[in-house]
Nucleic acid binder design. Sequence first.
DNA 1: TCAAAAGTGTTAGGCTTACACCCATGC
DNA 2: GCATGGGTGTAAGCCTAACACTTTTGA
Lengths: 226, 226
Amino acid sequence: MNQDQSYCYPYPHPAVTTDVVLFTIRDEDLQVLLIQRANPPFREMWALPGGFLDMEEDLEACAKRELLEETGIEGLYLEQLYTFSTPDRDPRERVISVTYFALTRSDTLQPKAASDAQEAAWFSLTQLPELAFDHAKIIQLAKQRLLAKLNYSTIAFQLLPETFTLSQLQTVYEILLNEKLDKRNFRKGMQTRQVLRETGKLSRTGNHRPAKTYRVINPTRVEIIK
Amino acid sequence: MNQDQSYCYPYPHPAVTTDVVLFTIRDEDLQVLLIQRANPPFREMWALPGGFLDMEEDLEACAKRELLEETGIEGLYLEQLYTFSTPDRDPRERVISVTYFALTRSDTLQPKAASDAQEAAWFSLTQLPELAFDHAKIIQLAKQRLLAKLNYSTIAFQLLPETFTLSQLQTVYEILLNEKLDKRNFRKGMQTRQVLRETGKLSRTGNHRPAKTYRVINPTRVEIIK
DNA sequence: TCAAAAGTGTTAGGCTTACACCCATGC
DNA sequence: GCATGGGTGTAAGCCTAACACTTTTGA
């Protein structure tokens, strides 16, 4: 077909990419990390971090690598979300995108742009810019999945630092669920689930009683039968 | 690289396939459809129905097409399961497999082999033959997903014909959960969920009182908050 | 009349929810 | 001492789970 294209197959192959929806909570709001594209198509538009699969790595490694390359962020919780395959979703060629969603605590240092991302920044889910490809749809699906897992898993802890107070934890739930929760019932529920351990240390901030701090017993995500 | 391979790209592309885990209930048992491979690799071994993605179709269409081509089965519930990408999972070349799971009622006519499947047959999950590729792992994951969805969705109805009795429905749950359920509580629960409608007809079989028959209000799957 | 599956209510205990006040600290 | 968030118990009602007998039919 074309002799300066070096990788040839007896029948057509699609390209495979990963795209990552990285959530955090900042400014009392659920936010998502976007990068501004440096190259066409959709040049200068905002998009999810992601990129093409290398032949030696599996998809999760690809997602982690792209996140690191484009934003400098690493070492976080990652879960496969869905695989998108509408034939014309990328104008260049047929591209299958395997999407992941990831969570990080907000005290992660600011994402710095790198490689083929011009810039990386956090956006509130309620104020997204226009997005490249079908990335708006991907973000909606990721949010739906995150919310669905809130009540039967320890996924929310991925949004907090290693140690935290119960009020901080409750605030995370309130922001995600978009409703106020009862303090006593919330704490009772956490006790029942047996996923927290007191650190023994107190958090002294502001002019009020210091709060006990906790850590997750098993920092790797666990599903919980209520 | 090779001039009689006609599809060339500036960087390497993996092949993309779909594989489908089709479940049914037969002989009081959860069974899965397998095909016997007609071609290498793993020639004559049993494997999930599936095959390579065409460039004009999306993944779900591919899964449906392969199921139809290899088994003659069509028109059933299909849900994306997971995308597998271990680099060496296929000895021929790098293959990404997007897997689906599907459910059908057992009165579907017998699968007939076609195209590159030598034979198609149902196997009990407890008596699987040795399987090609990583298909054993895929089946395990599909089963796990099916069981997880039992209690908060109407997924189980996909395993029954259009109209059915409450005893038939209960039997499906009992087989899947592998435990006996209380008849009165089961019926009460179904009433609460408001997903069934009486057909007005009775099922007369055997020497006993005829049973009322029901159909699902919304035959497309609905998620239910208990 | 017998066997076989269909059909039907009640109760106890556990879980969920609603709700209000004192505590420890910094200023 | 006052403002601020931290921390704690109880009671009502709802949901879940356990449990046994009558009905209808065909043979």
